[in-house]
């Protein structure tokens, strides 16, 4: 099945090892995600696009235990087959903390501080039969 990204411009695509696309402030070095033109740290309007790191540590997490409202959610919301999914913030060293889905949803297996790596996960299938994917972080084995 052909994969398509949930949106353009959030992670590098196509790519074997996709990376999130963020901004870096030219004045103060602050990192932002997603891309934005103004810096919330120093109010500068001079920022440049950067690819963010693919590995970091889990800063905090939760588990989405019920189907989100759709729209906006594009994944499965059937209460009979809905699968809980993890959500967390991953601290990318020297850059920023990123909010993302987690591939792990078992509270017993999620620990603050654990090593995580970026992956892509399927959300649904679009009208053209393509698999729509978004980014997530997986525990590093």
């Amino acid at each position: 099945m052909t994969q398509v990204p949930v949106t353009e411009g959030v992670f590098s695509w196509p790519s074997q090892t996709p990376q999130l696309i963020g901004s870096r402030c030219v004045e103060c070095g602050n990192h932002m995600f997603p891309v934005q033109s103004g810096c919330p740290k120093c109010s500068s309007d001079s920022t440049e696009e950067v690819l963010l790191g693919r590995r970091g540590t889990l800063w905090t997490w939760t588990v989405q235990g019920y189907p989100p409202k759709s729209p906006p959610y594009a994944g499965n919301v059937d209460p009979k087959t809905f699968q809980a999914f993890g959500v967390g913030y991953i601290e990318l060293p020297g850059q920023i903390k990123i909010e993302a889905r987690l591939t792990e949803s078992d509270p017993a297996k999620l620990k603050i501080g654990m090593e995580m790596e970026m992956v892509l996960v399927p959300l649904n299938t679009d009208e053209a039969g393509n698999e729509v994917v978004t980014f997530a972080f997986a525990p590093v084995a």
């Binding site: 959610y73 594009a74 993302a100 959300l123």
Partner: peptide
Amino acid sequence: WYGASGLA
């Protein structure tokens, strides 16, 4: 993408 991905 944020809501679509289940983060909103």
